[in-house]
Design a protein around this nucleic acid. Structure first.
Lengths: 337, 337
DNA sequence: CTGTTAGCGCATTCAA
DNA sequence: TTGAATGCGCTAACAG
């Protein structure tokens, strides 16, 4: 099957392909009538410019790669949409890759994006990622990289995150102020910067209010929901069980809520629970889940904007931006009656 | 910033670019030692093949476009992942476009995908789409198109859907068998084939059991959740209100559930509610939502497989496939105690 | 205003 | 086993 090219149009019109090209690209130096004829024939022949050829020539694809670890949860799709909207304003398209939390897939995706010659990269890495070489390759080739949510602090690149530390601090502070003394934390894996920051917020809040940090009450896990169940039960089976739980994310918190219900515990009286992210489900269930909300749309928009700024900056003038968006504690029935 | 090319490698090694190309593509006719040297230098120089150049040359991009109306709900992301997995097995990458339920954006996306020279298209159209010219263009150019979920019955292309008709029939049958006499239906817009099929299933179930079809109880709307609220209240305000509601999808049903609660109605006693899709929320909420589940992962996998088959078929041997996957009624507390 | 020429990076003939 | 030449579709000098 042959796709119409400018040569087809040129031949049929008895003019040169340069003129066709100029007519099609709104170049000023074309006779109005000629342009008219070209445009009409192009329309008639279903002509579509071949972006591959243009990209090869201009060395830019106007395409941005977005890499996320998953997009089943509400979070990443929303961020993607936010970024996409910003990028679209400047004429950039987007290729979305999800690595299914697999480091190997992430590396493979990075290669594919490199081969596709994306002009930039927006990324949140997998929980398995400890080696960031595949991202550094982009940097070395002069392709701007912006991390969001799960960032690589060791790389000299722009970041967009939320204030995980303060979000966690406030969550724990709220639990303390409502009378809880033994607050457990189901943390994320230490490969994730946000998980480390939330853990620090948790610790510092306890310390700030003179409560001890009991290592028994802090469990870092791989965010695999099947295991959340086990860990929550483990905590509740302790001789001196917690009276509150601060979870790394809402799905984990919801799992805890379910376990508590099954054990006949009253939430929030026997066990108060706080999550992180404000998943839409959290407002719908009974009791509602107290949680730290983050400005998800804005996260994506900012990531897009930062990348656009970088794209329009000469390489030698590059200064990485570190944007931190505020979080907001949303109090619901899982912590107060 | 200059990206390494085969010419760079050729020059540094004092050989021709043809030989480099052959070494890099595992061509048989290359001296083993030469290949070794090429591979090593390529690695050292961070060489990445330029897919643009190859695609331009071979006239295939190994890229498939996936167009969906949105990906905030759980449904489309899951389908996308299913399709992507299948396509990846055959070395195809994926570009995902979401049109935000806007016809104009959909048309623009179609053009972009055409310009990017995708090898195939998997698509679920927007609820605004009445004109399918932008999809027919793909067909005319010999680019295979597979519709899923929201299909265009007028086009001679492959489809992958679920059995919307029977799903709806069984849902309504279940309501009838549990004693409901006045069953309302909050339908989707008639632009969507699945919405029309579900409506037919609803009607036929009523007829099959000798119940009248009361036009007052059937409301087709644009699936904009803000309006669901209004329509549910309208139905419940009728002089002779319904005792059951079959909704086009789960979000609508959940909205109805919320309205019923606000009005102090008991679900399922005063109003039984059935949704469609088995959104993860439906199992978590109180009472659980009875709903028609569809095999979402399989939907995507099948769409991918159908497209792959088409891709490997000579054009003249093309026969469109119409795949219909089974649905399954999941009974929860919103219809039975 | 228009045509000619060159070249983006690569795979693939055809010769050697 | 290797090299030289060709062309994929297009834009951008350059020359008329």
């Amino acid at each position: 099957m042959h796709q119409t090219t400018i040569i087809d149009i040129a031949r049929q019109l008895g003019i040169s392909k340069s003129t066709v090209s100029r007519a099609l690209t709104a170049h000023p130096n074309v006779n109005a009538k000629t342009r008219q004829r070209v445009l009409e024939l192009a329309e008639k022949l279903d002509y579509q410019r071949n972006q591959l050829a243009i990209s090869l020539l201009t060395n830019q694809t106007h395409t941005i790669g977005i890499m996320v670890p998953e997009f089943i949860s509400f979070f990443f799709p929303k961020v993607i949409i936010g970024a996409q909207e910003e990028l679209a304003k400047s004429g950039y398209n987007v290729i979305i890759c999800h690595s299914n939390e697999s480091y190997e897939t992430e590396v493979a995706n990075a290669k594919a994006l490199l081969a596709s010659r994306v002009d930039g990269l927006i990324v949140s890495h997998t929980k398995e990622t400890r080696n960031f070489d595949h991202f550094m390759t982009f940097q070395r080739k002069g392709i701007p990289v912006v991390f969001f949510n799960r960032v690589c602090e060791a790389m000299n690149v722009s970041n967009v995150t939320v204030d995980d530390y303060n979000g966690a601090f406030q969550a724990v502070e709220h639990l303390i102020k409502t009378g809880r003394k033994r607050i457990a934390h189901l943390a994320g894996p230490d490969t994730l910067a946000n998980s480390r920051n939330r853990l620090n917020g948790y610790r510092d809040a306890l310390t700030a209010y003179g409560l001890p940090i009991d290592p028994e009450l802090v469990i870092a896990y791989d965010l695999n929901l099947d295991k959340a169940n086990i860990y929550v039960n483990h905590l509740l089976n302790l001789p001196n069980p917690p009276d509150a739980l601060f979870a790394m994310n809402d799905p984990t918190a919801l799992e805890a809520l379910s376990v508590a219900k099954h054990r006949g515990l009253s939430v929030p009286d026997d066990l108060a629970i706080v999550g992180f992210s404000d998943d839409p489900i959290s407002a719908l269930i009974e009791p509602g889940l107290t949680t730290v909300s983050q400005p998800v749309d804005e996260l994506g928009q900012q990531a897009g904007q930062v990348l656009l700024r970088q794209l329009s900056t000469k390489e030698d003038g590059f200064v990485p931006e570190r944007i931190v968006l505020p979080t907001n504690l949303i109090i619901r029935g899982s912590t107060v009656n």
